[in-house]
Nucleic acid binder design. Structure first.
Length: 618
RNA sequence: GCCGCCGUAGCACAAUGGUAGUGCGCUCGAUUCGUAAUCGAAAGGUUGGGGGUUCGACUCCCCCCGGUGGCUCCA
């Protein structure tokens, strides 16, 4: 929640009743009430109201910090998606040691069963109070509040400017943990002073905390940077540079498989596949407006024979150029150009993160040029196509956002309304629930962002569908209509996976490195018990290769247990064991990476089976 | 970019300012052993780079490079 929102509705809270599991637990009554007082009832059942627990815990943390470091100034401390934080202004950095001390002090406060009480006071009175206490950040917040009254919450002598609500008393926190310390700008603005933020989480029982800590362990285990190295998928190198990805053989196999699938499906969906250069003359970027609107993300131009060229941060101008290479008729539309286009964008060093945020990446980009009357159908098509592609990779849950007109925009209000409604209508036709992100559209048009949810229910921004009024105008795009006159086409940008790099990173974490068979770099490892089985194993290998199955052989003079362990760690879906029995019966024994011993079968039966899985993209 | 933390062999990690080590992996040798680690040997390092303090620096200080947790931004 934005800090401004956070305090915006301070005035609406005059008194608070708290119910837990339907039973009235507490009424927090203010000492003084403005004339128009009312009672707000908050009902929550145990951790259903976890934000309230988290918010209350952040107060307790701030209380503990003030106890231990009286000179620290407190800023804000809200509940967030996973836990809470509080920002502090303290000259010396907090150390991990300090975290332990703070935790210890928090436990003492919790034990005291301090009641959370609220009171409403005059804003001016509050300002004086916080000014006297030296709490300059609270004063700054207070000064922005329009109302005459504000609410304060107190717990054991720690008083904070706060809208509430809170748990009845500190003892309701049964388990908590402080997780990390990080820098954060006051009010999120880098022009402001950097404060120290402590993150934490809390629960009303210990088991849930343990579960959460296990979840964090699982997140660590799935980290694509760790798995990327262990499985030979990708790397980055100091010699090459930050944010630039080397795709190793196993990663490259997965990428190629994704690309082949992507291209085939695009051809089926009547897209034309393009290839375009990585650099273009600076003039082009001037014309497209990128130089004006996007230069912060672009690299310095290079000089080629006295002409300035620029590394491409986007593919659109190239596709537009191809559109313009001929006169277009209304009969041709929609024209759908798709490209796995590699772009380079400057990203600040601090934001780079594995495959999730890089400086060179390949977008699964497409630009659709259509008539106004086709826009709804096209968006619906794209939406269907997106959901199909995503579900193929096991993503069936999404958060969808519709971003509307920002303050700085190009195009007519009429166009904005029309296309925003088209996006809305498509979402509603598909019966997809979405949230509106007001003012978060791109300057050139509204967009739909789809955040996919992975196996751990974490959200990732990948797909985006954007309507563009800017480029058709800047490049003066036209088509000849049935009336014989020139018309301006609508342009839609879309990326389904977003970028191959980020999508790959998400895939790695989603599957925890255990890719489905069709994506697995190595689908089968054939392993022998003893050296006398090598010949038979080689025959099996040859047949599998001929069947287009990605197989490897392990003929080493090692124990079978060792070979199994190694292949299992590499997350190879099928292990084929070959010993005396298999040779004499002319079959193979199958073991899966999850440890399941499937049994002994004729090779052809296995091939038929695995091919079926691969063809069905399982 | 900013704040904090980190940088030691391919990987994971040790080493109160006093000779740089362990495990895994790699290489070699032995073992031919049926469902997650056979035994042994050897190789492998200007401790990210530069400068300083010190008789002596992996260790302390400064600058740079890179990574990392966040802030902001985003595919």
């Amino acid at each position: 929640m934005e800090s401004s929102d956070y305090y915006k509705s301070l005035h609406s809270l005059n008194a608070l009743a708290i119910r837990v599991d339907g039973k009235l637990k507490d009424i927090v009554s203010p000492d003084s009430l403005p004339p128009q007082s009312s009672v707000q009832v908050i009902t929550f059942t145990s951790m259903e109201g976890k934000e309230i627990y988290w918010h209350s815990t952040s107060h307790i943390m701030a209380h503990a910090v003030k106890d231990l470091f009286p000179d620290v100034k407190v800023a804000i401390g809200p509940a967030i998606e996973d836990g809470f934080y509080y920002d502090f202004d303290k000259p010396e950095p907090f150390t991990p040691d300090d975290l332990e001390k703070i935790e210890k002090r928090m436990k003492e406060i919790i034990k005291k069963k301090n009641r959370f009480t609220s009171r409403i006071i005059q804003k001016d009175e509050a300002i004086t109070m916080f000014q006297n206490a030296g709490e300059i950040y609270k004063v700054e917040l207070l000064e922005e509040i329009a109302d005459d009254f504000v609410s304060l919450y107190d717990e054991g002598g720690f008083t904070d400017l706060c809208r509430g609500p809170h748990i009845p008393d500190t003892s309701k926190i049964k388990a908590f943990k402080l997780l990390s310390i990080a820098g954060a700008y006051w009010r999120g603005d880098e022009k402001n002073k950097m404060l120290q933020r402590i993150y934490g989480i809390s629960f009303d029982n210990k088991e849930d905390l343990d579960k959460y800590l296990i979840f964090l362990e699982e997140v660590k285990k799935r980290d694509h940077r760790k798995l990327g190295r262990e499985l030979g998928l990708f790397s980055m190198s100091d010699d090459i540079g930050s944010g630039l990805i080397l795709w190793h053989p196993n990663g490259a196999i997965i990428r190629r498989t994704i690309e082949d699938f992507w291209r085939n499906e695009h051809v089926k969906a009547d897209y034309k596949i393009l290839y375009t250069p990585h650099i273009a003359r600076l003039n082009l970027w001037q014309k497209s407006g990128h130089l004006e609107f996007y230069s912060d993300n672009m690299y310095s131009p290079m000089d080629i024979d006295g002409v300035a060229y620029e590394l491409k941060p986007m593919n659109c101008p190239f596709h537009i150029n191809i559109y313009q290479s001929e006169l277009r008729s209304y009969r041709e539309l929609p024209i759908r150009y798709a490209e796995l286009g590699t772009v380079y964008r400057y990203e600040r060093s601090g934001v780079l993160h594995g495959l999730f945020r890089v400086r060179g990446f390949t977008q699964d980009d497409a630009h659709i040029f259509c008539r106004e009357d086709q826009i709804e159908d096209e968006i619906l098509n794209i939406l269907n196509f997106t959901l199909f592609i995503l579900s193929t990779f096991g993503f069936d849950k999404y958060d969808i956002y519709l971003s509307t007109r920002p303050e700085k925009y190009v195009g007519s209000l009429q166009n904005w309304d029309k296309s925003t409604n088209a996006l809305k209508k498509a979402l509603e036709l598909k019966n997809l629930s979405y949230e509106i992100d007001p003012g978060e559209g791109v300057f050139y048009g509204p967009k739909i962002d789809i955040k996919i949810k992975d196996a751990l229910n974490r959200s990732w921004q990948c797909s985006t569908i954007q309507v563009d009024f800017n480029n058709p105008e800047r490049f003066n795009l036209v088509y000849r209509g049935s009336d014989g006159k020139e018309h301006s086409p609508i342009m839609i940008h879309r990326a389904l996976m977003g970028s191959l790099e980020r999508f790959f990173g998400v895939l790695i974490e989603h599957y925890a490195g255990a890719f489905p068979v069709w994506l697995s770099p190595v689908q089968v490892v054939i392993m022998t018990i003893a050296e006398r089985h090598s010949e038979f194993a080689s025959e099996v290998y040859k047949i599998l290769k001929e069947s287009d199955i990605r197989a490897e052989m392990d003929l080493r003079n090692e124990k079978i247990g060792y070979k199994i362990r190694e292949a299992t760690i590499k997350k190879v879906p099928y292990l084929l064991l070959i010993g005396d029995k298999e040779v004499s019966e002319n079959c193979i024994t199958i073991r899966k990476r999850n440890g399941e011993n499937v049994g002994t079968f004729p090779l052809q039966e296995f091939i038929k089976n695995i091919k079926e899985q691969i063809n069905n993209r399982l």
